[in-house]
C-alpha cells in the first residue's frame, strides 16, 4: 500500500531556514541542510524547501543550496520559490532537485506548466496554490499571499492538472499559522476531483489534524512547518499515532 506522506516544509530566506506567521514576521531558525538531514533521520518522507527570497536573488545561490541538499539528503525534496521560466526549472533539475514547486509564475503565465511538464515530466512539477475564502469563494493569491488574483481554487486546480501538473500543494491562507487544523472539506473536494496527488498545507497544530487531513481531507500527503521546527510534534510519534489510527505510513 502506498503510504501517506509527512512533509516538513522549510522556508528559506537568504540561505537560512525561517518561519513567519501568515507569510510575515520572519524569524531565522537554522541551516537548510542540517534541518533537512535531521528531519530525514526522524522519518520525514519528503522535504519541501521554499525560497521566499528567490525572486530578488541570484539564481546561482539557490542552485548551490539545492546541490548541497541533493548531496546530503537521501529522501526526495521539492524546491519552490525560484522558478519564473523554463530555464530556472532546468537549473534546479541539474542541481539535483527531485521536484520543483511553482505558484505565482504560473498564475501570471499558465503555459509555463505545459512547458515544464513537457520538458521534464509531470512528476517533476508541483503546483502550489494559496487560497483564501472570501464570502464563500476560494480566491487564489499570488506573491506569497500578498496579491489576490481573479482565479478560483477549484477551477484553477482543474486547469493546472490539464496543463500537466504532477501534484497540487494546497495552502489555505485562512488556516495557515493558526494551528487549528487543515481545510479538510476543501482538501477532500480537491482530492476527489483530481487524478493527481494532493498535499495538504496550512493549519497543523496537533497530531489529530494530520489524521483529519488524511481521513476527512483524503490528502495524499500533509505538509507542516512550525510544529516540526519548534518540536511541538515529533515525527516518529506522529507516525506511530497515525499508524495506530489505521493510516498507512512508513515507519
Amino acid at each position: 500500500m502506498l503510504a501517506k506522506r509527512i512533509i516538513p516544509c522549510l522556508d528559506v530566506f537568504n540561505g537560512k531556514v525561517v518561519k513567519g506567521i501568515n507569510f510575515i514576521n520572519l524569524k531565522e531558525i537554522g541551516d537548510p541542510v542540517e534541518h533537512g538531514a535531521l528531519y530525514s533521520q526522524q522519518g520525514a518522507d519528503e522535504l519541501v524547501y521554499l525560497d521566499i527570497t528567490a525572486t530578488h536573488e541570484k539564481r546561482k545561490l539557490l542552485s548551490d543550496l539545492v546541490r548541497r541538499i541533493a548531496e546530503n539528503i537521501n529522501i526526495p525534496f521539492t524546491v519552490g520559490g525560484g522558478v519564473n521560466q523554463l530555464s530556472d526549472a532546468d537549473a534546479l533539475l541539474s542541481a539535483g532537485a527531485d521536484k520543483i514547486s511553482v505558484n505565482s509564475a504560473v498564475l501570471l503565465n499558465p503555459s509555463l506548466i505545459d512547458q515544464i511538464a513537457k520538458s521534464f515530466g509531470s512528476q517533476f512539477l508541483v503546483v502550489a496554490i494559496d487560497a483564501k475564502n472570501i464570502d464563500g469563494r476560494w480566491v487564489v493569491y499570488r506573491n506569497g499571499g500578498r496579491i489576490a488574483t481573479d482565479r478560483e481554487l477549484f477551477e484553477w486546480a482543474g486547469e493546472v492538472v490539464l496543463r500537466g501538473a504532477g501534484e497540487i500543494l494546497f495552502t489555505s491562507m485562512d488556516h495557515d499559522g493558526v494551528k487549528n487544523g487543515y481545510a479538510c472539506k476543501e482538501l477532500a473536494m480537491l482530492s476527489d476531483a483530481l487524478p493527481i496527488p494532493v498535499i495538504a498545507s496550512g493549519g497543523a497544530g496537533a497530531p489529530e489534524h494530520f489524521l483529519e487531513a488524511f481521513k476527512t481531507g483524503k490528502a495524499d500527503a500533509a505538509l507542516a512547518a512550525s510544529v516540526f521546527h519548534y518540536n511541538e510534534i515529533a515525527i516518529p510519534e506522529l507516525k506511530e499515532y497515525l499508524h495506530q489510527n489505521n493510516v498507512t505510513v512508513r515507519l
Binding site: L2, Q123, G166, P195, P197, D220
Partner: peptide, 10 residues
C-alpha cells in the same frame, strides 16, 4: 488510482 504512483510503498 492517482497517477503518477508517487511516494513510499512497501
Amino acid at each position: 488510482g492517482k497517477v503518477p504512483h508517487m511516494g513510499w510503498n512497501a
